[in-house]
Design a binder for these strands. Structure first.
Lengths: 226, 226
DNA sequence: TTGACATACGAACGTTCGTTCCGGTATACT
DNA sequence: AGTATACCGGAACGAACGTTCGTATGTCAA
């Protein structure tokens, strides 16, 4: 999926470099129009078009209908990196609670609580997919309710805290109308959302996008059998 | 100029903490309205008012007339710091091949062969359950054939090499009559063996104990989603 | 040639979002 | 009493911003 940087069009490379610099200087992403101005594109739709291409190529993430809803993923060659990221073997992530069908996810509260070592589990860094470990957490699955996500009782689900999702992500969503938490693949279709079970024979469900609260993206699942 | 954090009003502290988390999760700052929603302020003007207070106190910078034109300066106490990643008790396990329904398991050959680093994966010791790592190996699942074991394509299965099993173990068995490899829970019943799928709605199969070659015991399953 | 596809442009539309103004409450001080 | 200050809420305005649509150009393969 991820194209070589050099395979991107001149404009697309320019956009990525501009974004990186803009974010370092401003602390927030540029608007479509600002990108257009810098890169010499004089139509917002063309910028929009190229941004979507960059999403397809794996360099960007976008959030719909949100101003400056852009995120860089990975590194852009030819720009200086602000953050020093060091790749190491494992990370400790907090095992903060349970996930079950009938209740919302208990997120780690934002009070910056300190977690006991007992509540931490070791995770190989590869299971985190280059995510900042400070917003990754783990939940233990209670009950059989996730079997259509191919997830069994007592499995440990590793999640990144986030409220938006891209098509194809597996997400933890809270459906307030049903009073239910579920793990499904996420596909936005107009103002509806299709929630597709991982199990191939199960049917998807469709919900109003307004009534579908994404709470996190599933990074991996760990099952201990013995 | 910079006030003590504790001298800020409850709301102002909450705003700062929210901003920190929001930015870590989204990559861009929140809007005034989003701040209001999170902190229980139901007027944009009040949020605006408090944001300006925070600028005065030296905790924020703003850019006029720009959506999400907010920057945090300095650190906010009471937010989760970036965790230091630390190397932990892990074992390297050889990822020796694939497992699919239609073929026997490829065991690591007994020549005591040396494996490339590329073919090794890091596994937290807890996933090995006190087993000698030298007889543990990993396989990648190909195809959908293991869905009745609640195991999806591309999952990594961690196994210990063994030719016998105890009741209740999940094992990898080769059924020569069917020409098939499968992962099931193992129960000896007389001279038959009951092989029970992990999925609760699936029916078990019964095979002659002689015609059921146990190749290994499943220790854990790892699924990467992203 | 035709058709499909990628890329580009400009204009219009509707929503998001910051700003402003006016009124309100509570406390403290004169 | 009156008044100053700090803080809160609601509503509206206008600019910022993302989205969509119709159209146009060039390339490549059938």
């Amino acid at each position: 999926m991820k194209k070589e940087f050099s395979k991107l069009s001149e404009r697309q490379q320019k956009i990525l470099r501009f974004m990186q610099n803009y974010m370092d200087e401003s602390g927030y992403p540029p608007t479509i129009r600002e990108i257009g101005e810098d890169t010499g594109i004089n139509s917002t739709s063309v910028v929009n078009y190229n941004l979507n291409k960059l999403v397809d190529a794996g360099y960007l993430e976008r959030t719909d209908k949100v101003s400056r809803g852009l995120r860089l993923v990975g590194d852009i060659p030819g720009t200086r990196k602000k953050k020093v990221i060091q790749a190491l073997d494992t990370a400790k992530v907090p095992l903060v609670g349970n996930i079950a069908a009938g209740q919302p996810i208990q997120l780690p509260d934002d009070t910056g609580q300190y977690y006991d070592d007992d509540d931490m589990i070791d995770v190989p860094a590869t299971l985190l997919g280059n995510n900042d470990p400070s917003h990754v957490f783990a939940l233990t699955v209670r009950g059989d309710s996730m079997i259509d996500a191919m997830i069994a009782e007592n499995d440990v689900v590793i999640l990144r805290e986030q409220r938006t999702a891209n098509n194809g992500d597996m997400v933890a969503v809270w459906l307030p109308e049903n009073g239910e938490t579920t793990l499904k693949y996420f596909y936005k279709e107009g103002d509806k959302v299709r929630l597709q079970p991982a199990h191939p024979t199960m049917e998807p469900i469709y919900v109003d996008a307004k009534k579908c609260e994404v709470h996190g993206k599933v990074l991996s699942v760990i099952r201990r059998i013995h």
